[in-house]
Write a protein that binds this DNA or RNA. Structure first.
Length: 213
DNA sequence: CCCTCGATTGACT
DNA sequence: GTCAATCGAGGGC
């Protein structure tokens, strides 16, 4: 039994979102719910850097009820639904600087059995190797925690027992429009070789240019 | 109001 | 490898 050391707001401030995205690798995403403490090691993230980023929800200053959480304090939880799944972002800059990090994959460390019950028939890495999958494993199927802060919410970044990734791979982000201006920016980060990293190779250039295993 | 499309996933050839 | 589900946000009219 270890105690949780929730990342303070300062963790998400005063440095570039890309750096925060890298720094989140090796920390723990933990959710304290009625099912117990669930979660795991963050092994993959993506940075979305605001109004100039064509792939960001806040591109061109877009601000709607949907993307409103991005404009709040650093550490704000931004959960949104995509095609029936829920995705988890953390706001990474000061108020009105709508940048964030998408948590794309975790390696289970807490509550494995319960997470497996939450996602039946998804054995092995398939339990948490994607942004929608990991939320399903945590048992989160709504936006209830949106606007709360990871510094105080039951859904948190735990800095205790951080692991230092041996090597980090950088790559273009998944699922973004590659034609758009920001489409090729290397804002995806993952722990090299970790089996829980999301996605299958869809293009040869991924392997050639970015050193996939 | 209507149409398009997505920071995904899972089923299927 | 290919492809459709699914539903709300966002934009056009």
């Amino acid at each position: 039994m270890t105690s949780i050391q929730s990342a303070p707001m300062a963790f998400f401030t005063n440095r570039p979102t890309t750096e925060i995205a890298r720094d989140l690798l090796g920390t723990h995403l933990l959710y304290t719910s009625h099912q117990g403490t669930l979660g795991g090691l963050i092994v993959e993230t993506e940075a979305y850097v605001g109004a100039q980023d064509t792939a960001a929800h806040a591109y061109n200053g877009r601000r709607t009820p949907f993307s409103e959480p991005l404009y709040h304090e650093p550490g704000t939880i931004y959960i949104y639904q995509l095609r029936g799944f829920f995705l988890f972002d953390i706001v990474t800059q000061a108020v009105d600087q709508p940048q964030g990090v998408l948590i794309r994959a975790i390696e289970p460390t807490h509550g494995l059995a319960q997470m497996q019950r939450n996602r039946p028939n998804k054995p092995g890495v398939n339990l948490t190797n994607g942004p929608g999958k990991l939320m399903g494993a945590l048992g989160i199927h709504d936006k209830q925690l949106t606007f709360k802060n990871v510094a105080t919410a039951p859904l948190t970044i735990d800095l205790a027992n951080r692991q230092h990734p041996r090597h980090i791979t950088t790559a273009p982000r998944i699922g973004v429009n590659t034609e758009a201006a920001s489409g090729q920016l290397p804002y995806r980060y993952f722990i090299t070789g970790n089996p829980y990293v999301s996605g299958t190779l869809k293009k040869d250039w991924d392997r050639e240019q970015h050193g996939w295993l």
